[in-house]
């Protein structure tokens, strides 16, 4: 099968999984959901790492890859840490 077709299949199925899972998130947690999904969209770091790999160092692509790693890492680290900070605050009533 053409890799493109495989990718489309993965894309469509993942969207359905996303809808199923995220519909169940209560409104109380909508902000942590957003910051948490910011964190996982930092998965672009993987793409950035793959791009930064170059047999010839002095390439324009490597510079773009460098910047991409910076931005994606901000998302990953910032997203997870701020989500955890928020989730730590949610408390149930005692007793």
């Amino acid at each position: 099968m053409d890799p493109f077709v495989t990718s489309i299949i993965v894309f469509v199925l993942a969207i359905f999984v996303g809808f199923e899972v995220i519909t169940k998130v209560p409104s109380t947690l909508h902000t942590p959901l957003m910051s948490g999904s910011n964190a996982i969209s930092g998965i672009t770091i993987v793409g950035a790492l793959l791009c930064s790999f170059s047999p010839t160092f002095a390439s324009f692509g490597v510079i773009l890859g460098f910047l991409a790693i910076v931005f994606a890492t901000i998302n990953v680290v910032g997203g997870y840490v701020v989500t955890d900070r928020m989730l730590r605050m949610f408390k149930q009533k005692k007793g």
Binding site: F4, I15, V21, L33, S37, I43
Partner: peptide, 15 residues
């Protein structure tokens, strides 16, 4: 052609 990015991107897109 990276499935990690496709799956994760779709999850966030759906969210």
């Amino acid at each position: 052609n990276n499935s990690a990015l496709i799956i994760t991107g779709s999850l966030v897109g759906a969210s």
